[in-house]
């Protein structure tokens, strides 16, 4: 508790280029960029594969391969290849980390829509694309959002590693704190990351309320 008070109670922590607001913004920037790239790749891909049934193997392989990949190892590898100080080495591992949960849940969601429902949609005269966008996707939306949420939380937590390669973000408090043995900084940084993850979780709960049809939310 004292640690926390020392960290958050210190007015100088709240301003300047290494203050909390700046670090938080940096952290959000990396995270948002990585998350958006992953979502733009994985959501359409998952929808397409779930709808057509083609490429299902790709989902399985990608999911397993990516899960086995150590984020830190990948980071070091990319840094070696791309050099310290650029954003790319941070983005790549985060994107790679975020794709599997989105891809797998989107695919499962779309593929798992009741066969009778799919049948009814075609039977009414919807075309393939209309079936995907007007029936399968809205019904699969809770699962798609689950995948996005898992990815976002992982990205936000893992973006801490940006600090390892000389970039900003909340990870700086942890890395710098460790280096200077300022443990209140380490703990303060960790609390901020955890808080951010909670905020993301909360944001998705709200998003769910707004975009998921009550008809689907209840059935789950």
């Amino acid at each position: 508790m004292n640690f926390l008070f020392g960290f958050f109670g210190d007015a100088s922590r709240w301003s300047g280029p290494d203050g909390i607001p700046v670090r938080l913004l940096e952290h959000l920037e990396f995270s948002a960029a990585a998350f958006l790239i992953a979502a733009l790749v994985a959501v359409p891909l998952g929808m397409l594969i779930g709808h057509t049934g083609r490429g299902a193997l790709l989902v399985v392989v990608a999911a397993n391969a990516a899960r086995a990949l150590p984020t830190l190892g990948l980071l070091v590898l990319v840094v070696l290849l791309a050099g310290v100080g650029t954003v790319l080495p941070v983005l790549i591992p985060l994107v790679v980390l975020a794709i599997p949960p989105i891809l797998v849940n989107t695919y499962e969601g779309v593929r798992g829509v009741d066969a009778d429902l799919r049948d009814a949609a075609y039977g009414m005269g919807l075309r393939g694309r209309q079936v995907l966008f007007r029936t399968l996707t809205p019904v699969a939306l809770p699962l798609i959002l689950l995948g996005l949420r898992l990815a976002a939380i992982q990205v936000v937590s893992t973006a801490t590693v940006a600090a390892f390669v000389g970039l900003g973000g909340l990870g700086r408090f942890i890395i710098d704190g460790l280096a200077t043995k300022t443990y209140e900084s380490v703990i303060g940084g960790a609390v901020l990351v955890a808080g951010l993850a909670l905020a993301v979780q909360f944001a998705f709960v709200l998003l769910d309320r707004v975009v998921v049809s009550p008809g689907v939310r209840q059935v789950r």
Binding site: D116, A120, A121, M124, G125, R127, P138, V139, S213
Partner: peptide, 20 residues
């Protein structure tokens, strides 16, 4: 799809769209 829009179709489990 054109053919089906001109033919009513009713199935066993109703197959209603749950989100609508």
């Amino acid at each position: 799809p054109t053919l089906r829009r001109g033919i009513g179709y009713v199935i066993q489990q109703a197959g209603l769209f749950p989100h609508r």
